[in-house]
Amino acid sequence: QEASKGFLITVTNDMENTPLGEKFSLFYVSNDEVTRLVQSASDFATRILYPDPNSMPEKIIGRVDIRLANQNLTRDHILAAEGVGEKTKYVIFISPRVMEFSDFRRRIRREIQKGMAEILLFGIQNRAPKTMLDGIIEYISNLAGVGPQKRVFDFRDVRGKCWEDEDPAVVAEFLGYCEGKTEGFIGRLNQAMREGRWDEETLDRALGMPAKHLCESFHSSMVMKIQDLNSPNSACGYR
C-alpha cells in the first residue's frame, strides 16, 4: 500500500492463480502501475471538479482499493464505500472480463478514471439527478482520453431537459458543450451541488443562463454534426 495525496492506495487480486489474475498481477500489481493510475486519475478529476484547490473538502478520500473481482460484474466496474467521514474507504471492483480484451490497458485506465470521478462526486448522489452525475463521470473520462473509441448516439430530440437523458454519452456531450460556452462550468456546478439542494436553477446559476436555452442550441449543433459524425473516419456516430 502507498500513501498518495493524503489517502492510501491498495490493490487486491481476487483472481489469483488464474490466467486473468496472473495477467492482472503482471501488469498492475508487481510494478505498482495501479498506484500511478489512481494518482493520475485522481489528479485529473480533481482539476475539473475543483478548479479552485481551496474549495475541495479536506480528507474527502481515506483509502482507495482497486480490486479485481472474483467473477464478472454487471458493469465493468462497481464502486463500494465502507465507513463514513474521514475514514471512508472506497473499493473500485473491476470485472475480470476487462482483462480479456486486447485493449485491456485502456479499459482498466478508463474504469479507474471513472471510479475516481465517482468517488470525488460521492456524497452528492442524492442531491442531483443520476443522469447528471453519470454524465459528469463520462465527460471526465472522455476528456482524459479514455472514452469509448467509437461513440454512438441514439439521435433524438434533446431540446428539453437534456441533462436528464438516459444515455451518459449524450449528457457528457451536453456538459462539454456547456463548458465550451462558459469555462469552469463543471467546477461551479459541482460546488453548487455540494452547497445545497439540487434544482434546475442550480444549473442555470452555474451556467449564467437558462439551461433549457442551451439544450435547444445543443440540439441544433448535434443536428449540424450528423454528416461529419457519420463519416467513415469519424470517432463518433449516430444511429
Rank of each mutant, 00 (worst) to 15 (best):
Lys5Pro: 04
Phe7Trp: 13
Leu8Ala: 08
Ile9Gln: 02
Val11Lys: 15
Thr12Arg: 15
Asn13Leu: 11
Asn17Thr: 10
Thr18His: 11
Pro19Tyr: 10
Gly21Arg: 14
Lys23Asn: 07
Ser25Ile: 12
Phe27Cys: 02
Phe27Glu: 11
Asn31Ile: 07
Asp32Lys: 12
Val34Thr: 15
Gln39Glu: 13
Asp43Trp: 02
Ala45Tyr: 01
Thr46Lys: 06
Arg47Ile: 08
Tyr50Ser: 10
Pro51Asp: 12
Pro53Gln: 08
Ser55Phe: 05
Met56Arg: 15
Met56Cys: 15
Pro57Met: 13
Glu58Leu: 15
Leu68Val: 05
Ala69Pro: 01
Ala69Asn: 10
Asn70Ile: 03
Asn72Asp: 15
Asn72Tyr: 13
Ile78Pro: 06
Ala80Gly: 08
Ala81Glu: 13
Gly85Trp: 14
Gly85Pro: 12
Lys89Met: 13
Ile92Gln: 09
Phe93Thr: 03
Ser95Val: 07
Arg97Phe: 07
Arg97Val: 05
Arg97Tyr: 13
Phe101Val: 02
Phe101Gly: 01
Asp103Phe: 00
Asp103Tyr: 06
Phe104Asp: 01
Arg105Asn: 10
Arg106Thr: 00
Arg107Asp: 01
Ile108Tyr: 03
Arg109His: 14
Arg109Asn: 13
Arg109Cys: 04
Arg110Phe: 06
Arg110Gly: 01
Glu111Gly: 04
Lys114Leu: 04
Gly115Phe: 10
Met116Trp: 07
Leu120Tyr: 02
Phe122Leu: 09
Gly123Leu: 12
Lys130Trp: 06
Lys130Tyr: 01
Thr131Leu: 11
Ile136Glu: 02
Ile140Trp: 00
Ile140Ser: 00
Val146Asn: 06
Lys150Trp: 02
Lys150Pro: 01
Arg151Pro: 01
Val152Ile: 14
Asp154Pro: 04
Phe155Ser: 06
Arg156Ala: 07
Asp157Thr: 09
Val158Thr: 13
Val158Ala: 08
Cys162Ser: 09
Trp163Asp: 08
Glu164Trp: 02
Glu164Gln: 12
Asp167Gln: 12
Pro168Met: 03
Ala169Ile: 04
Val170Lys: 00
Ala172Thr: 13
Phe174Cys: 11
Tyr177Pro: 09
Lys181Tyr: 00
Lys181Gln: 10
Phe185Lys: 11
Ile186Phe: 06
Ile186Gly: 09
Gly187Glu: 02
Gly187Arg: 00
Arg188Asn: 08
Ala192Lys: 12
Ala192Gly: 14
Ala192Arg: 14
Arg194Glu: 04
Glu195Arg: 15
Glu195Lys: 15
Gly196Phe: 06
Gly196Asp: 10
Trp198Leu: 09
Glu201His: 12
Leu203Asn: 03
Leu203Thr: 08
Pro210Thr: 04
Lys212Cys: 06
His213Pro: 08
His213Lys: 05
Leu214Val: 01
Leu214Trp: 02
Cys215Lys: 04
His219Thr: 11
His219Lys: 11
Ser220Phe: 07
Val223Ile: 15
Asp228Thr: 14
Leu229Asp: 14
Asn230Ala: 06
Ser234Ile: 07
Ser234His: 11
Ser234Thr: 10
Ala235Asn: 11
Arg239Trp: 03
